[in-house]
Structure formats: C-alpha cells, structure tokens
Design a protein around this nucleic acid. Structure first.
Length: 653
DNA sequence: CTAGGGTTAG
C-alpha cells in the first residue's frame, strides 16, 4: 500500500501523502522511506529528518537506502551536525560501504566544505557507480580543487566507467575554473562521442569555458547552433561580451562589444525569458561604460517592473550607471530611493558627486555615511580626498588623510597619493607635491609622475619637469599616454634630442600608438569617431559643421592653441597633428546635430582630453546652450554654459 | 542519488 504514499509524493502533495501514510495498517521500512524521501524531494528536509526520528522511535529498522535518503536531507540543509548524528547509525547498521550511503555521504561532506571526508566516503564505497564518481568529481569542483577533480575524472575513465551528462558538465566547469582550454576541448570531443553535446547544461558549461578563455568567437558559434537556451545561456553571452570590453585594448572594438552585449540583452527580452538581477547589474555596467543613458533608463524601468529595484547590487549598478552617464541628479534620486545602503553604495554616490565636481555634496554625504556607522574603505577615501582636492581644500584633505589611517586603519595606496599630489599640483605647490611622492614607500606609479609633470608644465617649472621625467623614464613606463606627455613636454621645450630618445624607448618597449577614439550612443546605436584630417571623405559633412562651430567660437573669443601637440606620428614626419579634428570634437558635433535640441550630448573618449579641446568645448556649450558631458580616460567633464565641472584642471595640459 | 553561472564603488 505504500505506493499510494508515493503517488501523492510525486504530485508534491505531502499533506495527503502523510494522511495516507498515517492510515496505513502496517508501516514497513519501504513506507517510512517513501515518506522521508518524499519530504526531502519536496524541499521539506526538516520534516524528513523528523519522520526518520519518528521511524526509529516506532521501532522500525532503517535500510541503507533510508539512511542515504536522510543524509541527502541533511546535505540539502548543509547540516554537518545532523549528518554526524546519523553517521552513528551508519556504523551501527554496517552500511558505510553501501553505494547509496556512500554517495550521499560524499555529497554531504562536499556541501559542508569537507572535501577530504567526501573523498574518503567515496573511497569506502565497494561498488562505485557513475553517480559515485560524479559526486566525487563534483565535490572537488565545488571545493575549489579543480586539478584534483580532473585527475579523479581521468582515473574514472581509466577504470572504464562511462561518464554521463552530469559528469561532463562538472568536468567542463572545472576546466573553466582553471582556464584549461586544452583539457576542455578534449572533454568536448568526449561529449560528442557520447552524444551529450546537445544537452543544455553541457552546452552552457562549454560556453563559459570559451568565454573565460577569451574565445568569444567560438562561444558565438556554439550559441548560434543552440536552439534551446536558458537564462544561463543569455547571461553567459552578455557577461562574455562585457568581459571582452575590458580585455581589448582597442577602444573601438571595446565599444562594439558593449553594444553587442546589449543586443543580446534585447534578444533575451524578446525570447520571453525573464532576466534576473545578475542580468540587470551586468547590462547596467555595460551602459555605464559606453554612456548609453537612454538604454540605461529603459533598463531602469524594466527593473522596477520586474521588482528588482530592492536589490542593493542592482541599485548600486543603477546609481553608478547614472553617475557614469553624467546624470548626477538621477543618480542621487536613485540613491535616495534605496532602502538599504551598503558601503559600496555610499562610496558610489560619494565618488559620483566628487567626479562631478560637487565637493560639498560629496563631503556632506560622507558625513551622513559616518553617522549611519557604515565603515568606509580605501575606495571611499579615494572619493573623499578627490572631493577635497577638487575644491582646493588642502587642510581638510590632510585631515581626512590622517583620519583614514589613524581612525580607520587604512594604509594609503597609490590612488590616495595620486590625489594628494594632484591637489598640491593644482595649488601650485610643486615642492610639496614632490615631497609627497618621495614619501611613498614603494615605487611611485607612472600616473603619479605624469600628474606631477603635467603640473610642472602648466606652472612653467620646466627644471622640475625634466627631473621628474628622468625619474619616470627610469620606471620604464608602459602606457602610451605617458610617452606622449613626455614627447609633448620635450617638443615644446625644443629638446629634440630628448624627443628622439623617448621615441627610441617607445620602439624598444613596443609601446602601441595612441588610439584616439570617441563615441556617442544615440537611440541604442553607438557611433564612433577617429581623429582625422580634413580630407577624410566620410566625415566631410561633420567637418563642415565643426568648422562653422569653430568660426562662431572664434567670434566669441576662442583662440585655437597652435602649440603643436605630437600625437603618434612616426619619426621623420613633422606634420603637426590635427588638433582641430580631434575625435571628441567630431563626436560632439555629430551629437549636436542628431540629438533632440534639449538633450545633453554625452561622449566617451579613449584618451585624455587636451587643453585646446577642453577650451573649445566650453565655447560650444555656450554657443549651443547644451550640456556636454565628456568622459575621457581620466575623468568626467560636464560642460554647462561655458564652465566645466573639472575645475579646468586636467592632466594633459 | 550526481550537473551549468553570475553582479556593485576606484
């Protein structure tokens, strides 16, 4: 009669299963076990364990299978305590060599983070089946011992045990964890042999394998051949493209990967599968990188509808997206609407104000944060110090720098020193800046010297600049922008032998060319621009508009800085670089013409903005009456009515 | 009984 219990169990109706069980004339082991397994299968492991205790109380002897079922209930509760308690029965009934019991023990120990015990339980099993092997292999993977897991898998193969879909899925994810494309590829061959390649789990694992190894093309090929997909598949493709954005040095392809990722997101929406919080945070981050505010807003609306706004991480991504897109108002609004505020959320908002040049608001918010007793970390202080630096609040900065170390026990890192140096430089205190650099107890970074050198140039202290340049060069810099800074400095000082020396170093170090790209996102499409010369055929229309703008700006008093900034031309070519046609100018011109007249223009630029461009854009913001938000490789510039939020101080001057 | 994955600040 216990089969009736099973019927209700299979229907997920445990209440009636229990009633039927209670009315059974005789309750044997099978009936009890069916009931216990039923509770476990229907996510009621605690009831299952209670039923087991009831069973012992009633004087029934559990079978090995009963014990296996109970152990699985413990495993789903991650309860080692209960598991240990039942281990006594396993010894008592001499069932530790039983396959089901061993499998269950292996899984229980694995879930509780005790890999060694899991493997011991596995080794004790007399007749190991595929499940035993798979449990043991997965146990390794779940506990971060991928190499061990793969070795065990090889042992399994050599024992002529045929893996199943479960096994290969776990093995593939372990190949992914240790980034072993070679092993993974061999496993894929095995999957083909056994006909597992069409299994969705297997395919998703393969997708991640390729993505983690940067083989986005192979991932795409695999994806295109899939007719059955799940949310895991979509998230993998989105995350994969987002990762490629960071991996590529080339900013043009980076932004292409970004828009590609967003295309996957729209396809996901059309597919009818509901995105989850991971999807939302990923796509918001992508929007923030390419400054796709319109899409970010649409996603915001979708998040509200889907009810994910209460998630802190989604909320933080949202605040960050608005900050990075230059919309501090909406960032602030989203921040205030969040019910829980983590340290990262506070930091994100403080940094947002700081980057927008709103120092007072940033510091006030930091005060609020301290009142709520959320502890700041090193990143929080990056925002706080930058706010002080921006406002020229020297004493406050020094004060916070001390509070950070003494009160919060945070050791300053390069980021903090860079801000302090930047501040001294802004105030024209070059000696103090240099002292600050000298105080750092490790090698100063490339960018800290760059900040200092740029400061020396703008304050006309060339001697100090040349000295710092030697220090910088001895560090063997890697960054193209660093070299360009030096080239410009030596060039404008007429030191041609130093120019050739730096160029030679660039060749030796194989430093790439400075790729100056700007892009603008309009209506879910990304348009990119490269610094070009006048004769560029495709941009002739934009160039014409740009020339009109230039003429108007000149009538307002704009003077183009004729100082020849060397960009990346080869040695021997003495052509001056066409600062007039800098990519950001083209992108902004394009934006002015193709966006609604009230809409701000948002542009991302791959390199640091130069002084001339900065000056020009100020005029353009006055001329057009538009807000222009430009994010370059170092900071955010928000131009409103001839003024810029950066306080007119950028490193590349 | 054993399976896939992933997010936020600089």
């Amino acid at each position: 009669m216990s089969f009736l219990v099973d019927v209700y169990v299979k229907c997920g109706n445990m209440d009636d299963a229990r009633k039927v069980f209670d009315n059974l004339p005789r309750r044997n082991v099978v009936a009890w076990t069916t009931l216990i397994a039923g509770y476990a299968q229907n996510s009621l492991p605690k009831h299952g364990i209670l039923a087991f205790q009831e069973m012992l109380h009633a004087g029934s002897y559990p079978s090995a299978y009963t014990l296996a079922v109970v152990l699985n209930a413990c495993a789903s509760l991650y309860s080692l305590k209960l598991g240990d308690q039942f281990h006594a029965y396993i010894i008592k009934y001499h069932v530790e060599f039983d396959t089901n019991v061993g499998n269950a023990l292996c899984s229980l120990y694995s879930k509780c983070g005790m890999l060694e015990y899991a493997l011991k339980a596995f080794r004790r099993i007399r007749q190991k089946n595929v499940v035993s092997w798979t449990s043991a292999v997965s146990a390794c993977g779940d506990n971060g011992a991928a190499v061990k897991g793969l070795k065990l898998f090889l042992e399994m193969i050599s024992e002529n045990i045929e893996p199943n879909e479960f096994t290969v899925t776990s093995v593939l994810s372990q190949c992914c964890a240790i980034q072993s494309l070679e092993f993974g590829t061999q496993v894929r061959t095995l999957c083909v042999k056994f006909g597992y390649e069409s299994n969705l789990h297997v395919r998703n694992s393969l997708l991640y394998l390729y993505i983690k190894n940067g083989c986005i093309g192979e991932a795409q090929r695999l994806f295109n051949g899939m007719d059955d997909v799940s949310l895991v598949t979509w998230n993998a493709m989105i995350a994969g493209h987002a990762q490629m954005m960071e991996l590529t040095k080339d900013n043009l392809s980076s932004c292409e990967y970004g828009s590609e990722a967003l295309k996957f997101f729209s396809k996901l929406n059309r597919s009818g599968i509901k995105p989850d919080l991971y999807t939302f945070s990923s796509v918001l981050t992508i929007c923030s990188r390419i400054m796709a505010l319109e899409q970010g807003e649409q996603i915001h609306a979708q998040i509200i509808k889907a009810g994910f706004l209460s998630d802190v991480i989604v909320g933080t991504s949202l605040v960050n997206m608005y900050n990075k897109c230059g919309s501090i108002e909406r960032a602030s609004k989203a921040f205030l609407e969040m019910s829980t505020r983590t340290m990262i959320l506070w930091t994100s908002m403080i940094t947002g104000f700081s980057q927008h040049g709103m120092s007072q608001q940033a510091l006030r918010l930091f005060g609020d944060m301290r009142l709520t007793r959320v502890k700041p970390n090193a990143v929080t202080f990056v925002g706080v110090l930058a706010a002080c630096s921006h406002a020229g609040m020297l004493n406050q900065a020094l004060n916070y720098f001390e509070i950070m170390q003494k009160r919060y026990k945070i050791t300053p890192v390069m980021d903090h020193y860079e801000i302090m140096v930047d501040m001294f430089v802004r105030l024209g205190r070059l000696e103090q800046a240099l002292n600050c650099i000298k105080k750092i107890n490790c090698a100063p970074s490339e960018s800290i010297w760059s900040i200092f050198i740029a400061g020396c140039r703008s304050h006309g202290n060339m001697e100090l600049g040349f000295y710092a340049a030697e220090q910088l060069l001895s560090l063997k810099p890697k960054d193209t922008e660093t070299y360009v800074l030096l080239l410009n400095m030596y060039h404008s000082a007429g030191r041609s032998e130093d120019v050739s020396r730096v160029r030679k170093m660039m060749k030796e170090k194989n430093v790439g060319k400075l790729k100056d790209w700007s892009w603008i996102s309009i209506k879910n499409k990304v348009y990119s621009f490269e610094t070009t010369d006048k004769t560029h055929p495709e941009s002739s229309v934009i160039c014409k508009s740009l020339e009109d703008l230039l003429a108007k700006a000149k009538s307002l008093g704009y003077e183009m800085l004729e100082s020849v900034e060397i960009l990346d031309e080869e040695e021997g070519e003495k052509t001056s670089s066409p600062t007039f046609y800098h990519s950001e100018k083209l992108a902004i011109t394009f934006g002015l013409e193709n966006l609604p007249s009230s809409s701000p223009v948002r542009v991302v630029k791959s390199t640091i903005l130069c002084r001339d461009s900065h000056n020009f854009i100020k005029y353009v913001s006055t001329l057009s009456g538009r807000e222009i938000i430009l994010r370059d490789s170092k900071r955010l510039h928000k131009f409103v009515n001839g003024k810029c939020s950066c306080g007119n101080f950028c490193g590349f001057l």
